[in-house]
């Protein structure tokens, strides 16, 4: 078991090395993309800073909370885009039959699909994520490790949610755009102050479009850890994680494999 895990880690590192090598085929382009991604993220954060400077707070949220949200959100999305973006291409793999390549190898197909695509520009999200944490005003070792843990949990949620959307392709053909749009809706909801969602919106915000698991709980936990929020977050994410895996394995049994010409 341990040896198998070690081999998988080695493979993961090798794939990442290959991804970086591919990105660095044009070094200037890769680095400019990282810088532009950082500027783009910071301009969005700047917009919220202006709003909070003028409004003071939005239902109890101030710029500090917003910065913590950006920290979690950017770090989670960077991890997704750099190490698991392939899952976003799953509908395409299903439609054109490229999924076959992943199913005939001795490794976990989901692992290989996830790591099959990486966007180098998203290193800019990590830069923004850490910068926003340091600007939040909640900087100490305890909050730092909580921010890291919440970022990882938020990544699992993004991954699970995107996997569920991608698996729709087992049922609906050409569902790439549908999945992209719903995933984008999650990211958009998660980028707003969690305090604006109340009543039924909050229920929706924590269930069907689980943006609250990226914004509401993590920000509360980083500010002041409490077991109730932590359990709610981990149980919620675990449900999404298990559901996505079940959906994927159900999909494989119904996979019909296409024959469109193509390459990886």
């Amino acid at each position: 078991m341990a040896a198998r895990f070690l081999k998988l880690c080695k493979l993961f590192l090798f794939i990442q090395k290959s991804n970086i090598k591919t990105a660095f085929l044009n070094k200037a382009d890769a680095l400019i993309n990282v810088i532009m991604m950082t500027i783009n993220n910071l301009s969005f954060a700047f917009m919220w800073w202006v709003i909070f400077e003028n409004k003071g707070s939005v239902n109890g949220w101030q710029f500090g909370e917003m910065a913590l949200l950006f920290a979690v959100m950017n770090n989670a999305f960077a991890t997704f885009a750099l190490f698991a973006r392939g899952i976003q291409l799953l509908p395409e793999y299903i439609d054109n039959g490229n999924l076959d390549n992943f199913l005939t190898t001795p490794k976990n197909s989901l692992f290989l699909i996830s790591t099959s695509e990486s966007t180098f520009a998203n290193w800019g999200d990590y830069i923004t994520g850490f910068l926003m944490y340091f600007l939040s005003g909640y900087v100490n070792w305890k909050s730092f490790w909580m921010m890291m843990l919440c970022s990882f949990l938020a990544f699992i949620l993004l991954y699970s949610f995107r996997l569920i959307m991608s698996c729709l392709a087992f049922i609906i053909s050409d569902s790439q755009r549908l999945g992209d749009n719903i995933f984008m809706a999650l990211l958009t909801f998660a980028s707003q102050p969690a305090s604006i969602f109340t009543g039924w919106y909050k229920v929706l915000f924590l269930t069907i479009i689980p943006a609250g698991m990226i914004s509401f709980y993590p920000v509360n936990l980083i500010k002041a850890f409490n077991w109730e929020d932590f359990l709610a977050l981990t149980i919620g994410i675990s449900i999404f994680w298990l559901s996505s895996l079940l959906f994927y394995h159900w999909g494989l049994k119904h996979y019909s494999s296409g024959n469109r010409f193509g390459v990886r």
């Binding site: 039959g97 390459v263 990886r264």
Partner: peptide
């Protein structure tokens, strides 16, 4: 996964090689 070590597959209509590598 077990069978994958015993078989090789080639699909003329698609590639198992990485496009840019």
């Amino acid at each position: 996964k077990k069978l994958a070590y015993d078989i090789g597959t080639v699909f003329g209509q698609r590639s198992q090689l990485w496009y840019n590598l």
